[in-house]
Design a protein around this nucleic acid. Sequence first.
DNA 1: GAATAAATATGAGTGTACTCATAAATGATC
DNA 2: GATCATTTATGAGTACACTCATATTTATTC
Lengths: 235, 235
Amino acid sequence: MKQAAKARAAKGKVETASPLGRRERNKQEKLDRILAAARELFAAKGFSDTTTQEIAERADIGTGTLFLYAKSKEDLLIMVFKDEMIETSQTALRKVSPDTPIADQLMQVFGAMVAYHNRDLPLARALIREITILANPDRREDVRSLMRIIYSGIGDIIASAHAREKIRPGLDLLLVGEALFGIYYVGLIGWLNGQVTKPTFLKRLRTKLALSIDGLRVPSAEPAAPARAASSRKS
Amino acid sequence: MKQAAKARAAKGKVETASPLGRRERNKQEKLDRILAAARELFAAKGFSDTTTQEIAERADIGTGTLFLYAKSKEDLLIMVFKDEMIETSQTALRKVSPDTPIADQLMQVFGAMVAYHNRDLPLARALIREITILANPDRREDVRSLMRIIYSGIGDIIASAHAREKIRPGLDLLLVGEALFGIYYVGLIGWLNGQVTKPTFLKRLRTKLALSIDGLRVPSAEPAAPARAASSRKS
DNA sequence: GAATAAATATGAGTGTACTCATAAATGATC
DNA sequence: GATCATTTATGAGTACACTCATATTTATTC
């Protein structure tokens, strides 16, 4: 990989030498290489110490090409993070007994996320970082896709729990998704802030979660359309 | 102001012409000018369309000097925003009758914040934007001060309500602060996202707030030290 | 296989937040 | 008022995310 990039850089434009240019490879392959490069570099050097140049180089593409596949550097992060987050939560859920109450199931998943966060900060911070998109009104579309990812991951959990009849039918998935994300977020702040210890945080979290789930009303008038994206993943 | 800056730019280094250079002014004056310049420009052009060069020019200082008074462009935003947010919440609270239940008082304050947000988006977005600090571990100190601001503002509200005996003594202020901030945050996402209408959001908010306040347990073992910063503002 | 159109790739170029070596001002001591 | 030390100011310079005019490949039609 590195060698290929170097060769390219040394030779300048390859025109007649290699009949197999990089363009015979299809878009998916290229995207895969980009994401792999990003994942490796983010994990090795951290997000802010990784430059888009480096990612492009490692993926063996031009600088500009990178931005045909991702709208921004942060876009790359969320793409990489998405898979890991969903995988983490689903792996955690698989270990939980079906008899466990829903609140505890969610706690397990959340615990796994937290553990993952501790293990691999540079990637996990993507979620928080990406939120900055909110500050830029031109990029609402990105926010929507971010939320779709989050709802998708959390929605899967809820849907799974629902299939085991541990949750009331008709519960507004979106609402729970929001609450869980919000709790995750708020907890993170307090935690990083150093003002709340881990056990305290987890205790509070448990309380809030129980409240959120046991106390929620099902909004009967609303069709709850936005949440459908989450449940349509595997139905 | 503009003229002064222009004159400076035209002449280059002013050495003998004006015996009253800018250095006779003390730091506070300079900071005030910087914040005023930032406030005006952010409001007029928006955050991202305002350059640090412009702010420096309007404040009649060098580019580098700006960064002696604020660690970053976003730092300026949070400084400007802090005052307005606290003022907004306190003004709102002043209009509420003492007989109003605490949940409704909070709702009033929150409504004022939302109204403010609608009225002056560029500044209000600072709060969300500043959260990006979390992504940079070198700036934990900044996060702490941000949270102190938020707790301070919300803490004042709670403290005030508490003085009117509409809230149980011993209620964990920090917890409520977290919850309110989290709710604000989550609501904002859904709102900007266009997936939740304003009335729906406010209805949900009311439900959640009631839950947070009526359902919370007071953690008796904890001294609740972090919340003290909020109440020490005026005691 | 020539000609044309459409899609995709490229990297030098651009804008801007932030830095840093240098300079100026201020204060202290004699 | 000369000398040194400390604080504060400066703007040209730097680094890096992202753009855009141009080039290259692929697809299509004859």
